[in-house]
Amino acid sequence: MCGRYVMARAAGDLVAELEAEADASLELRASWNVAPTTDVPIVLERIIDGAVHRQIHVAKWGLVPGWAKDPAVGVRAFNARSETVLEKPTFRAAIKSRRCAVPVEGYYEWKKLPDGKSKQPYFVHTPGGELITFAGLYEWWKDPGKDDGADDQWLLSCSILTMASPPSGELASLHDRLPVPLSGEGLGQWLDPENKTPGPLLDAALDQAWELAAAWVLDPVAAAVGNVRNNGPELIAAVAP
């Protein structure tokens, strides 16, 4: 699964690395301890005047489907399981036409220790600090309690897709779930707003995921990351396990 991650890059850096557009006023808060229900950057593609535009937006992490009566639904939908995403009411509309990617610099996972009681947090990242893009979904939710035209009438939210971890290796021993990474080519295919057949897209993303994840580094980090109030670059510093 993915329950905490790191995103400390500035908006301009994301625009350059993802070859995307962003509103000039977009500001991103650097965070070394991103948690569900907080605002996070996402990248998506839209067709505007007949042309495809790749854009960076800020969304609340925890998907709220358009039919929801209350945005609290998103608290339980920060991850979407690849095995059921095509059928689950919360996600099945979004995966057809509202696919996004969630850029991260790495994520945290907690490994159960042999005593069965305590856990060791790990920071999972690329060897050179390269950006990872996780396959995601997004939705727009209209707040019925807001006046038409109000700045906060519409809520943009997102979810990260997960899959089973590889059957063996470090990632398998860390957790039984894995956030689905996208390759550079896979990112373009996943975001394509003109593709309305999500089944093959999902299969293609899953087929590449284990190979991409095999290159990741797993560093044990201090237990301080378990408290969302802690937020700084010291959280990703490797410690003795």
Rank of each mutant, 00 (worst) to 15 (best):
V124T: 13
D39L: 15
I47P: 08
V102I: 15
V104K: 03
R99M: 09
A80H: 12
A10K: 13
G74M: 11
K119H: 13
I95E: 03
W32T: 08
L137H: 12
V102R: 07
E45K: 13
L86Q: 04
A101M: 15
F78A: 07
T38A: 06
R98Q: 10
K69G: 06
Y108M: 12
K142H: 10
A20P: 00
G106E: 10
G136D: 09
P65L: 10
A10I: 01
N79Y: 08
T37E: 07
H125W: 09
W32P: 04
L63N: 06
V73A: 06
V43G: 00
I47R: 15
K111T: 13
E45F: 09
E21W: 02
E87P: 08
F123W: 03
L131S: 06
V124I: 15
V73Q: 04
R46E: 14
E45G: 04
A80T: 12
V64S: 10
R46A: 08
I48E: 14
L63C: 05
C100Q: 11
K88F: 03
C100M: 11
A11T: 01
E21V: 02
G66S: 15
D13N: 02
L137N: 12
N79V: 09
I48Y: 05
I48N: 04
V43D: 00
N79D: 11
L28D: 04
P71E: 02
T84V: 01
L63S: 09
F78V: 05
M7G: 01
E21R: 08
W32F: 05
E17N: 03
W32E: 04
S25E: 15
A80I: 10
W32L: 02
E139W: 02
A11Q: 00
S118F: 01
T133E: 15
I95Q: 07
R76V: 00
A22V: 12
A59Y: 14
D49R: 14
Y108G: 11
L137P: 07
A8S: 15
V15D: 01
S31M: 10
A135I: 13
K112A: 10
S97T: 14
K69F: 01
F91A: 02
I95C: 07
T84Q: 03
G74F: 04
D39V: 14
G66Y: 11
T90F: 06
E17H: 07
W32N: 07
R54Y: 00
V43E: 05
G66L: 11
G50R: 05
T133V: 13
K146W: 13
I48V: 15
E87I: 12
F91Q: 10
V34R: 01
D13R: 05
I132V: 15
A101I: 15
H125T: 13
P89I: 04
A30V: 11
E27V: 12
Q120I: 10
Y107I: 05
Q120A: 02
L28C: 14
D143M: 06
G12D: 10
W141S: 07
P114T: 08
S82C: 07
D39C: 11
K112M: 11
A35R: 13
T133W: 11
V52D: 00
R92N: 05
D147G: 09
E87Q: 14
F78S: 02
D148T: 10
W141E: 00
K111L: 04
T38S: 14
A8K: 02
D23R: 14
I42F: 08
H57A: 14
G50E: 00
